[in-house]
Every structure is written in C-alpha cells, then in structure tokens.
Design a protein around this nucleic acid. Sequence first.
DNA 1: ATATACTATGAGGAAATTTCATAGGATTCC
DNA 2: GGAATCCTATGAAATTTCCTCATAGTATAT
Lengths: 321, 321
Amino acid sequence: MLEIRHLRSLIALAESGTVSAAAKRVHLTQSALSHQLRAMDEHAGMPVVRRKGQGVELTEAGRRLLAAARAVASEILDAERDLARIAGRAGGELRIALECHTCFDWLMPVMDAFRRAWPEIELDLVAGFHPDPFALLAADRADLVIGSEPGRRRGLVHAPLFRFEILAVLPTDHPLKTKQWLEAQDFRGQTLITYPVPEGRIDLVRRVLRPAGVRPQRRTAELTVAILQLVASRRGVAALPNWGIKNYADYGYVLARRIGKSGLWSELYATMTEDVAAQRFAADFVATARARCFETLDGLEPIERPSPAAHQKVSSGQSNR
Amino acid sequence: MLEIRHLRSLIALAESGTVSAAAKRVHLTQSALSHQLRAMDEHAGMPVVRRKGQGVELTEAGRRLLAAARAVASEILDAERDLARIAGRAGGELRIALECHTCFDWLMPVMDAFRRAWPEIELDLVAGFHPDPFALLAADRADLVIGSEPGRRRGLVHAPLFRFEILAVLPTDHPLKTKQWLEAQDFRGQTLITYPVPEGRIDLVRRVLRPAGVRPQRRTAELTVAILQLVASRRGVAALPNWGIKNYADYGYVLARRIGKSGLWSELYATMTEDVAAQRFAADFVATARARCFETLDGLEPIERPSPAAHQKVSSGQSNR
DNA sequence: ATATACTATGAGGAAATTTCATAGGATTCC
DNA sequence: GGAATCCTATGAAATTTCCTCATAGTATAT
C-alpha cells in the first residue's frame, strides 16, 4: 500500500537526483529507499524511476506520482498547521537573530513563507549583528538564533538545518587559480575579506589558518555583494558558503576553490530555548527553512547525526540513523 | 508519523460513526482502529475523536484532519487513475449487466462518476433483464455483472460490494404492523409483489419461504416505485433492500419490517471474467461503486470475508489477513 | 439492574520496514 | 584500459511497527 512515507521519499528523490542523497534527506539508508522504490514500482505496476548515469531519473509514472506527492505533502502541512492553531495559544512572536551574515540570502523568502502560513505570529529579525548572538537568547531579546552549533548549553535546543561547504573566493586572475584546492599556506600573505565579526567566528580562520599558524591581514565588509566586489577588484580573497557565491562563480565574476582536499564544511542550526522549541510554530519555522533551503540552495547536505556527541564519519559508506 | 492508512480510517470513521463499523470498512479489528486513533491523538497533540453515546464523534481537530484526509484520498485516487492510464495507453469498454433490479437506484450516479474519471472507457448498461445474467459473461455480451454471489465458477472473479438487509414492505394499515419482525408463516396467504424474475432469484422465497413450505401468490412489477405503489394500495407485500425503501418508509408511505429476528441479509458482488478483472479501470469501477454506496446508502455493511481470489484480484486495497 | 453495544488497553505475535553486507553498473581519471 | 569512485540493487537478518486477541471499562437502553 502506498503511504505518505513513500511520497516523501519521492519528493526527496526528485529534488536530489540520487537515491543515496535522498536517503540522507529522509534519514534512511540508501538500501531502505531502494526497497521503497521497488515497492512503489510494484504498486504502480511499472517502474517509477530509471537509472540514469550517476543517479536516477523519474519516469512518466514517477512524475505523475511526484505531483500527487507534492499535493499531498502540502495538504498535510496545512492540516498540521491548523492543528497547531486549534491546539490553542494563538498568537505569539518569533524574534530571529543571525550569527551568519550570509544567511540573509535565504532567510527573507523563508520568513515570507512563514508569515503566510502563520499570520498570527509576529515575526521579527533582531536588527544588527552581535558579538555573541546566543547571549540574546538568555537576555530574552531573541527567540531563535541561526548559527553554527555553539557547544551544548543547558536549556537550549539545537535544530539542525543543513551542512554546507565553505569555498575560497578568488579574483579571476589570481595566481592560485591553477590549484584545484587550497591549503592553509596558500593564504599566507593574502588579505582576507570577511564580515565584521571576531576572528573566532570565521570558520576558515578558526579551523584552518590558526591551527597552521597563518595569520593573513583582514578587511571587512557588511554585505556579501560588497565582499565579492572587493574580491573581484583584487583587494583580497574571501571564504563564503557555496550557495552564496554560486551565481557569481558560474557567471565568471569570481573564482571559487575548495579549501582542503575534501573541503571545509560547516553546519547551521537553529538554536532556541526549550520553551520556544516546544511551540509548534517554531518547529514549523525550522521545517520551512530546511525545506526551502534544500529546494533552493545548491550543494546542501543534510546533517546526519542531529544530536549528542556527533561522531563525524568522514569516509563514505552508508552510516545513518 | 501520520500515514495514509490513518486518513483512510478517519474517513471510514466519519462516514460510519462508530469505531467498530469503521474498522470493518477498512478490514481491521476495532482494536486496531482504536490504536490508530490513539496514535493520531498523539500526533495531533490533542484528541481527534471523543466518545459520544453509542459511538464516537470527531473533535474540531478531527474534522480538520478529515478534510485533509478527503483531499489526500482524492489526490491519490486521481494519481492512481493516471498511473493506470499511463500503463494501459488504451481505451476499452465495460458492459454492465444487473441481476438485481433495485441496483438501478445507485448505479446511475456511480456510472456518472466513473465516466468522469475514465472518459476513454466506453461504459454501457446491458439492456433488459435476463434470466441468467452470468451467462452474458460467458457469451461475451457483458463484462461485469452486479449480483449476488453465484457460486464459484472457474474463470470468474467476484469483487465484494457490500452486505445489505432485505426488509419486508407492508401497507401502513397491514395487520402485521404490530410485529417487530416477521417470520415465514406471516407470509402465508399474502400476495408477494416482486420484480419479474424466477422465484429462485428472490432471496425471501429461496431462503425463507420455500424452506418453510410457504408459497404465497406472486405478482410482478418492473420498477421499484411500481412495487411500492402496489404495496401502498394494499395489493400485497414486498421484500426490498432497505436502502431502496428508506425514504418511503421514513415518509410513512409504507411500513418496513425486519424478516427474521436478526434480519434477512444479502450480499452484492461485481462478477467479472479474469481478464476484465485484471484491467485497472474495472477495479476502479468496483472501488467507485463501493465508495459511493457506502457514502450514499444507509445501513450497508462491508463484506467481512471476501472470497480470497476475488479480493486479491480486485481491491487494490488493504491486505487483510 | 441487567443486557447491549460500543470503546480502551496491554500483551504477544505477525508482518512490514530497515539495516547490513555485498555485488554490480556506470563514469571519470590517469 | 584499468583503477578509483559513485552510484544502485538485492537477499537475509534484525528491528520496529502494527495488528489481533482477550478482556476490562463505559454509556445507553430496556
């Protein structure tokens, strides 16, 4: 029997293009998803996907089912929102603070979508950037902080959003352009253009340069476009999330290079106090953000192990759950 | 996690009003459905149903979920039809013959609905009534016969539609009006008004009167309304499906009485040849008929123990074990 | 008050789903 | 053209989920 779980998997599959990636998205193994697909084939009486080079492609039947899946998913989502509303405590507010400047790029559409779904919730963006956004939670000046995991503090809940790669951004005629990927030493003598935040909050510095004893000069800019402009005009190099620069790199405005052989990856979490996390609309905000980002942004990875003592499995292989 | 099976159960529950009846409809035990409901309560964070006298009533949350369930169900149904179309690529025809005259009452709307869903299938009603409609299948003059189960013949598939009660119909001033239920002897000396079919095809005669040696006079009429007119004008008594007479009885035009202490029940099946049953649109016709009848007609019971072969072939529905 | 019709619940078992382990197919890179 | 790398498929074992059975509980009606 066809169930919603199959439909969800199908959506993930359509959006990620491979069974393995889709499996991660729905927190299953590739094998489980493969079995699910076979079940769907059987149910439909014909193949729903066909193998297509690296990955897999929906057949006509698959596309028809996908349409149904999307319709069903949105129907369910609406219903759950209404349920939450019925559960009472209409009204509320959600004040969001950002640790990460680039997040502006995707936050606005997410906020719009959320406002449409929860008109009765007052949604605010805490203005300005703060040295320690997580302090805003304690000070009750924000309800939700979007940032990397700040270590475990009591009373705080971390909802995983996604993993993404941080790429080095170079002017198109930079001497390092020939390298496939950069290492710490390559940054020696460069000017690093960053957002105006403490060094410790910049992943490249904290996790790559500082351990290697490299301390490039810094220069700051508030906006992503400003940073890119500075890079393009050869005032220095930057390190930015791949989704934030994809368009510029594709267009040839700047170059993007991997940092380290397997890349420099970072994670984003939504951090809330426990009582905020208990509210359904907060959970829904996180879900909306996740869904929208995976749909819109490129090269995102789900965070496999959301909670305690995250054992990072670097090697390939199917470990999950 | 909420699944389609929960939504289907919810629909059945809303349409039948009690957990037990709904359970039968979805081929589960009352217990299983009760567990499902508890799971839904949990998922919704509040009760979905509340007990209400004999039976159960949807809460506001339940009603909201029901709406989602209906939307999802129709979405899935449409998708499956399209899948069948994609698989089939062909038109086809479905010639329907009726064993049971009264079935006209519900068949027309079902045919309309089916035509809307399968415009490319030519749908015909085999004209006139035949002494042995099942012979029409063998003669390839019909593809599907709606009637009671004609015993097991090879090459034929029986898809269960529903169980219904046959009630005795009396004029409002009939001497038997005081009895709660009638027995065979009560029919002695009465005139029995029936459709023009052989005695053996009339359940009341075959299963009640003949075994008791009672042989009332017979008089026939083609249409249900004609039979009711004759009864109302005291020309005799009749035995008709409860759904066919409910309106007339409620309105006080005739009286309806149970036959035997626990009633005289009959079953309706759609009988097809194997190759017809294999076609998806045929299965869908049966599903449409079932759904529509349970929704529209009163006092229907699901057929608990569908003949194993028929069930396998036809209902794309739940496994029942 | 007792019969009746319905629902709730816990335990045990059956069934479906997931994972594990592995094989096999395609593509890319020297 | 082989090695490396990604990807998917599949059978069997393991796990989780779901269903049924047995029975208790609750409301309604007679």
